[in-house]
């Protein structure tokens, strides 16, 4: 299949590339944009490691084609971590030991950031619910929920 030219914004920077229509967004970000923070685990939507924001909403990078992102604004974990909100989340993850191998962390951070955008003071149950589609094989989840709750509490105080 012939390659298609696409132009999109990734973490605020314009990116133009020639891609095969079959290339998924997660592979595009890793291979073409060289942003390897977005991880690829299951490639069928189940693990959440590839989660990125497209036009402000968290989606599975493995379940969207790069050509569908023409004109879109993508935020990856690299962009999130460079923002004030994102670095707050990253720090809380470190403080609470919310990562061990770190494979799930980019997806967890993007998903948690989306939750806190919509719902700045979630209950523990709401955090668990929102993160229910992100697998972590190391931490046992409690520390991740703790970290998200910490950020919400900190923001409420400030």
């Amino acid at each position: 299949m012939s390659r298609r030219a696409i132009t999109l914004r990734v973490n605020g920077e314009e990116v133009t590339a020639l891609v095969e229509p079959r290339l998924n967004l997660a592979d595009f970000l890793r291979q073409e944009a060289e942003l390897t923070g977005t991880h690829v685990g299951c490639e069928h939507g189940v693990c959440g490691a590839c989660t990125v924001k497209v036009d402000g909403r968290a989606v599975r990078g493995c379940l969207m084609l790069a050509v569908q992102c023409e004109g879109a604004e993508i935020e990856t974990v690299e962009g999130l971590a460079a923002s004030a909100q994102g670095s707050e989340l990253c720090e809380a993850f470190v403080e609470q030991n919310a990562l061990q191998c770190g494979f799930c962390t980019p997806g967890m951070l993007i998903t948690a950031a989306e939750l806190l955008d919509d719902n700045p003071a979630p209950t523990r149950e709401e955090v668990r619910d929102h993160l229910s589609g992100n697998y972590c094989r190391c931490t046992g989840y409690q520390a991740i929920v703790d970290a998200v709750m910490d950020v919400a509490a900190k923001r409420e105080m400030s």
């Binding site: 959440g48 968290a58 989606v59 599975r60 998903t111 939750l115």
Partner: peptide, 9 residues
Amino acid sequence: VAHPAIRNR
């Protein structure tokens, strides 16, 4: 139905 990131699409 599924999880938020899947429901967004």
